[in-house]
Amino acid sequence: MKLKSLAQTFNYLILLTITTHLLLPKTLYAGSSSAVILMYHHFGDETPPSTSVTLEQFDAHLDYLQHHQFNVWPLSKLIHHWETNQLVPERTVVLTADDAYISVYTEAYPRLTARGWSMTTFVNSEPIDRGFGNFMTWQQMREMQAAGFEFANHSHTHSKMRRIEGETEAEMLARVRQEIDIAQQRLNTELGAENVPRLFAYPYGEYSESAANLIAEMGYISVAQVSGAVDANSDRRALNRFPMAVNFAKIEDFRLKVNTRPLPLKSVTPWDPIVGENPPTLTLELSKPVRQLNCFNSRGQALNMDWQTPTRLVIQSEQALRSPRDRYACTAPIGQGHWYWFGHLWVID
């Protein structure tokens, strides 16, 4: 079968690597804080496939989660369990949606409510205030909130959380602060400050380390748009989420992703996703050795991997990464149907 895009090639090769190891001896993974965060945008067939899942796909996702007895939590509940050192049950998934598009209300809301589940939606407040028809209204959000759904900050104008052309570092940080403050004020006013968690989703999934540090200093826990599972040790300046879109939301892909675990990492260097020299080098310090780890760029090409010690790995793509965003991804089998999955964002000017 001919693959339709390089992105599909990347996804296919990861799945192929994983399938190759399905017959390995099984070992029990004892996780106590891990979860998978999923990111949606549109629900339906009439919106861009790059940011949409079909209703058939979404129904299949929910059926799978229910049939396999997953715990479906809002993001604030997961964070609360981490911060209070409570165990997170096995098979815990967080559903999130970015931008507060109308289909979250018309399609996702009734489907989730029927199962007693909720979702965390990240809101860029300007289009809501301007009454754009493809977004939800504040009243619809209040209705959903009363049913247990939560809403959080996605900036006011959907502005990038990094320097843009002609902008100094100080100007960027001032803009970031203003964008987040305005959006939070609008959320607090419309939905009640006591009901709005200090959570933030990066517009376009882009950020610099200095912007991420500022946002953390402002009291927010942030989520990114890079595939990978999370646990209590994950960096809360940019928690990984699996993006759900037509080409990557088939049920076999979904099944794989919701059963992943975070790679046991001690450090990632550089953490800053802004690329200087292209292709960049990434150093991973693991908390324990991991067998059969494989790493890829977004083209699906294997990365050069230099194991300097059993727990120190240096990886680099042979080819320059593509602007404006790219990624490295690493996977390894754990056993019992679970896989480690780690993704690192790169932003290329």
Rank of each mutant, 00 (worst) to 15 (best):
M1R: 12
S5W: 12
A7W: 06
A7C: 06
L13K: 14
I14T: 06
T19L: 11
L23C: 00
P25R: 03
K26P: 01
K26I: 03
Y29K: 07
A30W: 07
S32T: 15
S33V: 00
S34G: 05
L38H: 02
Y40W: 02
H41N: 11
F43Q: 02
G44T: 11
P49E: 14
L55H: 01
E56V: 06
Q57M: 09
D59V: 05
D59P: 01
L62V: 10
L65I: 05
Q66Y: 13
Q66K: 15
F70N: 07
V72R: 04
W73C: 05
S76T: 08
H81F: 08
V88D: 13
V88Q: 08
R91F: 06
A100E: 00
Y101H: 08
I102R: 08
V104L: 08
Y105E: 01
Y105V: 05
T106I: 11
E107Y: 06
A108M: 14
Y109Q: 09
T113K: 15
R115L: 13
W117P: 11
S118N: 12
M119Y: 00
F122C: 07
V123C: 02
I128C: 00
G133W: 03
N134H: 14
Q140S: 03
M141K: 02
E143I: 13
E143C: 04
A146N: 09
G148M: 10
F149C: 10
F149I: 04
F151A: 04
H158Y: 11
H158P: 04
K160W: 01
R163M: 13
V176A: 12
A183M: 02
T189H: 04
E194K: 08
P197G: 06
P197N: 12
R198A: 05
P203C: 09
Y204L: 02
E206L: 03
N213V: 02
N213A: 09
E217K: 03
M218I: 01
M218Y: 01
G219P: 05
V223H: 01
A224S: 15
D231F: 07
N240D: 02
N247C: 00
N247P: 02
I251R: 10
R255Y: 06
K257L: 14
T260I: 10
P262C: 10
L263H: 03
P270G: 13
W271Y: 13
P273I: 09
I274S: 02
N278S: 09
N278Y: 13
T283S: 10
S287R: 12
K288G: 00
K288R: 15
V290E: 08
R291E: 14
C295D: 09
N297F: 13
N297G: 14
A302D: 07
N304A: 12
V314S: 13
E318P: 00
L321M: 13
R322I: 08
S323I: 06
P324Q: 04
D326M: 09
T331N: 14
T331V: 15
P333Y: 05
Q336P: 01
G337S: 01
G337V: 09
W339Y: 15
W341S: 06
D349K: 14
D349L: 04
